[in-house]
């Protein structure tokens, strides 16, 4: 289906040790800022922008990101994705990502904020070649509501499909339906309001690193709960239930730092937002 509210296409390649754009295209309510090189590693950082300031009724967004061999990219957003009430039809975002062998993509968008009566569906489809590395996170948060309800949005649905060499290797499907579910109860959000998910796939992943991540992140606290588990391929999922965006972001940053230091001998760049 065409008629996207916003479209973004980024094709990136490595040229003389530096990742550069081969093709950048955007139209409508999606755009990308000029590339930023945070250090001398050649890794490029792109900030995605939603000039409209939020996703509205029936909005449809499409992103296409492709990395050639050895390209190294950080992709983030300029600010949180805000979804407002969608009385007629849900807001939708579809992202297709293609990662060639040896490429590295860290895709760390700001949280999703779903306001009163918002309905949102997001589908990420990642096609990676063996030897590519993918690090992804998302955070679902409820927006402020006039009557103080903790979960005033109607539906948030996130689908992540990851293929490696054309075989499905991970399928993650979250559908939170506060309009019809007893969302605070056992088995659902269990008294928490924010849900964070991180997924990392890399040939360098090991059970030993998972254990170290667990010991670094897990603590006896009422502030959050974590779950950490290995995928059927080399990689893992981290889930966090918490009440604050910052709590989840801190855990994700710590996890990201450990991975980055272990695999790339560097600290991830601080992502400056204005």
């Amino acid at each position: 289906m065409k008629d996207w509210t916003g479209e973004l296409r980024l094709d990136l390649e490595e040229r003389l040790g530096k990742t550069v754009a081969k093709n950048v295209y955007f139209q409508g309510a999606l755009k990308v800022m000029r590339p930023v090189y945070h250090d001398d590693s050649g890794q490029v950082c792109y900030y995605i922008l939603n000039p409209g300031g939020g996703y509205l009724d029936g909005d449809r967004y499409h992103l296409h990101i492709a990395l050639e061999e050895q390209a190294r990219v950080t992709l983030t957003t300029q600010s949180a994705t805000k979804v407002y009430k969608t009385p007629q039809s849900y807001a939708y975002q579809e992202t297709e990502i293609f990662l060639k062998a040896g490429s590295y993509l860290e895709y760390i968008p700001d949280p999703l904020i779903a306001y009163q009566h918002a309905r949102y569906k997001q589908k990420n489809v990642i096609h990676m070649e063996k030897g590519a590395t993918f690090l992804y996170s998302d955070i679902i948060t409820p927006g402020w509501s006039p009557n103080g309800e903790r979960f005033s949005y109607d539906k948030v649905q996130l689908i992540n499909e990851i293929y490696m060499d054309d075989e499905l290797i991970s399928f993650d499907h979250i559908k939170l339906n506060p309009a019809t579910q007893n969302i605070e109860a056992l088995g659902f959000m269990e008294g928490f309001s924010h849900l964070g998910s991180m997924m990392v796939i890399s040939e360098q992943m090991s059970p030993d690193l998972l254990d170290r991540l667990y010991h670094a992140l897990n603590s006896k606290t009422n502030a959050y709960e974590i779950g950490l588990s290995l995928l059927p391929v080399k990689g893992f999922t981290l889930r966090v239930l918490a009440n604050l965006t910052q709590t989840i972001e801190q855990l994700f940053t710590e996890c990201h730092c450990m991975i980055s230091e272990e695999w790339f001998q560097k600290r991830p760049s601080f992502l400056r937002k204005y």
Binding site: D172, L176, E190, Y214, N218, G227
Partner: peptide, 19 residues
Amino acid sequence: EDFGIISPGLELSQMKHER
């Protein structure tokens, strides 16, 4: 399209069981 929907708390308890 509804295939594989999970509930966060349940899944977390299944991951936590490893520990």
